[in-house]
């Protein structure tokens, strides 16, 4: 191995092998995945996101939420995500087919959000969580998402409204051909 082109060709081979083995074969398996009905003839899942939620994803991205929050729930044998009540089934590849940028995340300084929309009760609950810092939480208050009017009440900005719509759209409360909900 004394020739530059031979070394380069060898390194290219190693990279191309992993590219073909992981990414091309992954593309063959996952690249054409589409929405599927939970039962025969039913509506297709995952449901299309409302327009406001798509705007909210931009806010989510722009604030860097993905640094601390994941959007994936591991199966029961791998970690205790389901036992913690984050979702009642593991997330599967089909859940992400409509997302323009898949934000699986790699770190959990806060809870997982893939099923957050099914866990919260109301918009107000999310707004309160964003506007104020919860006791014992490392998540700061995102006060700049709200404006205070003269009578002391808080009004959410457009970003906050979109972000909440996005967070509430995050749900895996439906059955997928790969992961049935346990009734």
């Amino acid at each position: 191995m004394k020739n530059l082109n031979l070394i380069l060709a060898g390194v290219f081979f190693t990279l191309a092998a992993s590219f073909g083995g992981l990414l091309l074969s992954g593309q063959v398996q996952l690249g054409q995945l589409h929405r599927a009905p939970a039962e025969e003839g039913g509506p297709l899942f995952p449901a299309k996101e409302p327009g406001l939620a798509i705007q909210g994803r931009e806010v989510y991205l722009s604030l860097g939420c993905v640094t601390c929050h994941t959007q994936q729930v591991r199966p029961a044998g791998q970690g205790n995500d389901i036992a913690r009540g984050w979702a009642s089934r593991p997330s599967v590849a089909r859940d992400y087919v409509l997302q323009s940028q898949v934000l699986l995340g790699n770190r959990r300084l806060g809870p997982d959000l893939v099923n957050y929309g099914a866990r919260v009760k109301s918009d107000d609950e999310v707004h309160t969580h964003l506007r104020t810092s919860m006791p014992g939480s490392v998540m700061p208050a995102y006060g700049f998402l709200y404006t205070q009017s003269k009578d002391g009440s808080f009004r959410p900005t457009e970003d906050a409204v979109a972000l909440v719509a996005y967070l509430k759209s995050l749900k895996i409360d439906y059955s997928s051909p790969e992961a049935k909900l346990k009734q």
Partner: peptide, 14 residues
Amino acid sequence: YAYLAFRSTDGVDA
């Protein structure tokens, strides 16, 4: 090229 070639093929679903 390999990626783009694989990307444009239509799968079973389509």
